[in-house]
Amino acid sequence: MDEIDETERQREAAMEIIAKAGAARSCAFAAIHRAKAFDFGGAAEQLDEAERYATEAHKVHTELLVREAGGQQTDGGLLVAHAQDHFMMATLAQELAEEIVDVYRALGETKGGSQ
């Protein structure tokens, strides 16, 4: 029974990571679209929201790692690997979005005034 419970907890955690990481990635791209329209306030809000989702995904990911490090038998599985992939892609999207927003901000300043 414990083995089944742990497997189900891993599945639930993986699905939560996928959902939160997906939301973080979506917010990161929304930030880029806002910056493209020179809406830097909106871009900052989207980046903040992306960070909140990423933090939530990171907490769940850390819980999985702590359980395994504590001796809990885990099978890893394709779903957990898929969740980690989503989390890594969301993190990359956030980092790139921050850089792109900065580029648009600099472009806006060179076009005549700080936006």
Rank of each mutant, 00 (worst) to 15 (best):
M1W: 07
E6P: 00
T7W: 05
R9C: 04
R9Q: 11
Q10E: 13
Q10K: 09
R11Q: 08
R11D: 03
E16C: 00
E16L: 01
E16I: 00
E16F: 00
I17E: 00
A19L: 10
A19T: 05
A21C: 00
A21I: 01
S26A: 13
S26V: 04
A28N: 02
A31T: 01
A31R: 00
H33D: 12
A35E: 03
K36T: 03
F38V: 11
D39K: 12
F40G: 10
F40M: 08
G41F: 01
G41N: 06
G42P: 08
G42K: 05
G42V: 05
E45C: 02
E45I: 02
L47T: 07
D48G: 15
E49I: 05
E49N: 15
E49D: 12
A50I: 00
E51N: 13
E51H: 14
Y53G: 02
A54I: 11
A54R: 15
E56K: 04
H58C: 08
V60M: 09
T62I: 12
L64F: 14
L65A: 07
V66M: 10
R67Y: 09
E68F: 09
A69E: 15
A69T: 13
A69Y: 12
A69L: 15
G71P: 04
G71M: 07
G77D: 14
G77M: 11
L78A: 08
L79H: 06
H82L: 05
H82E: 02
A83G: 09
A83W: 10
M89L: 10
A90L: 12
A90T: 11
T91H: 10
L92F: 07
A93P: 12
Q94F: 07
L96N: 09
A97N: 03
E99F: 06
I100Y: 03
V101S: 02
Y104W: 03
Y104E: 01
R105C: 04
G108S: 04
E109S: 04
T110E: 09
T110A: 06
K111D: 15
G113M: 06
S114Y: 14
Q115A: 14
Q115N: 11
